[in-house]
Design a binder for these strands. Structure first.
Lengths: 231, 231
DNA sequence: GTCTATAACGTGATAGAC
DNA sequence: GTCTATCACGTTATAGAC
């Protein structure tokens, strides 16, 4: 009880609420009311952000009654936290798998990350702006949810990178530049895509084509950058 | 009259409102009430975005009475449009000057853009996320305000880049990749800085140091990328 | 579980005194 | 120009019938 906000002090706790359940397989379309609300919430939150989203938008998107939202998730804020947590961990998990493969080389990992993240982002292009702008309003979200630092610095990827540096194959001013460059080259076109589509007058199809090209180009570019640093 | 929203049909038009005046020199601190409100609005909008900002936040930040905000700027929306326009054009103008210098080479322009934009972003690090997330909620903003496309494709920079391609010095799959890479390498660390500061546990001072390094490194990296493409 | 109606609250905007 | 008080409205959350 004690962790609830004032206004919820007397609200009965229901053990069957969705955020206490285990996440379902994402691919089986959830046609339960609860599932529909969560799907709708994900869509609307990702598109408009927390502050600009009205619970009515979510209810409408889900095709359900507004009251049901509070029945299942108790508050807009709680529903948002669920979506945020799932979005963040989905993003991280995806990377952690690749980063910790013992069998692949550093170069191969760059290829895999570029390819798999571009594919992921093509399916959910609004996610990066969503994450970055929500973190701006509440940076604490990051640490609450996921041990990002652990996942990063104890990864096979990170150790391989460090070894490449001590071997002299890379002479990075800082490993952070390597990370910023890799993620930046992958993610930036997606966060800037509204501008890009205006400036370059390119359609969605052309944009997809450009991103497909980048899957192959980014590893080449990263290699070139590493060589340039080694000089 | 006709362009006003319904609720403003009968609101008297005042010719002396701030957004009709010419912009003042940015460096002389504006201590008029109007100036204080605008400064405060810029700060708060940039930090929290339109939807999450309350007019009361702005009034408090400016140290003035809430009613004065509507007295000077008539509505939250109008005030926001002023800030948005100034922010966007400030960003573009800054680039247009460099892009259209006839005397500098393509390579030199890359250096100048990297250096001047990183300096700009160090002074206003919240601006990229602000622009990108507001455009997400209202992409029309872009075209309303600034002829971005014109400025870009008729620039000396763009012509120089095209010439370098036809000369065989660059073999870009698309000039858009060049642009995405350059801007991405510059801007991405700033939009991702909250994550970066958590993941890398770096302080503001270390972040500044990294960005200073990037002023020199980005031109080198861009050159390396161009060479890799030329192969 | 789902609905309608409504309470409770927050926020943008305004009237009117000074 | 600046203030206090208040309105008007939209939004979240809830009660209670079914």
């Amino acid at each position: 009880m004690i962790e609830f906000k004032k206004k919820f002090y007397f609200y009965p706790v229901k053990a069957e609420w969705s955020y206490m359940k285990k996440a379902k397989e994402p691919k089986e379309k959830d046609i339960t009311t609860e599932g529909k609300i969560k799907e709708a919430a994900r869509t609307v939150f990702h598109k408009k952000g927390y502050a600009a989203t009205r619970t009515r938008d979510i209810a409408e998107e889900a095709g359900i009654n507004l009251a049901l939202l509070n029945y299942y998730f108790r508050s807009k804020e709680k529903l948002f936290h669920i979506i945020m947590t799932e979005t963040l961990s989905g993003f991280m998990q995806h990377m952690v798998v690749v980063l910790n493969d013992e069998k692949t080389t550093l170069e191969k990992k760059v290829e895999l990350i570029a390819a798999s993240y571009i594919d992921l982002l093509l399916r959910a292009p609004e996610v990066p702006v969503f994450i970055l702008s929500e973190i701006r309003n509440n940076p604490a979200i990051l640490m609450e949810k996921i041990p990002v630092k652990q996942l990063m610095f104890h990864s096979v990827f990170f150790k391989q990178h460090q070894k490449a540096v001590t071997d002299g194959r890379i002479k990075e001013p800082s490993p952070l530049h390597f990370l910023m460059n890799l993620i930046g080259l992958i993610v930036f076109p997606f966060v800037a895509s509204p501008m890009l589509k205006k400036i370059g007058s390119i359609k969605d199809k052309d944009f997809n084509q450009l991103m497909q090209e980048r899957k192959k180009l980014i590893p080449v570019w990263i290699k070139a950058i590493m060589k340039a640093n080694a000089k």
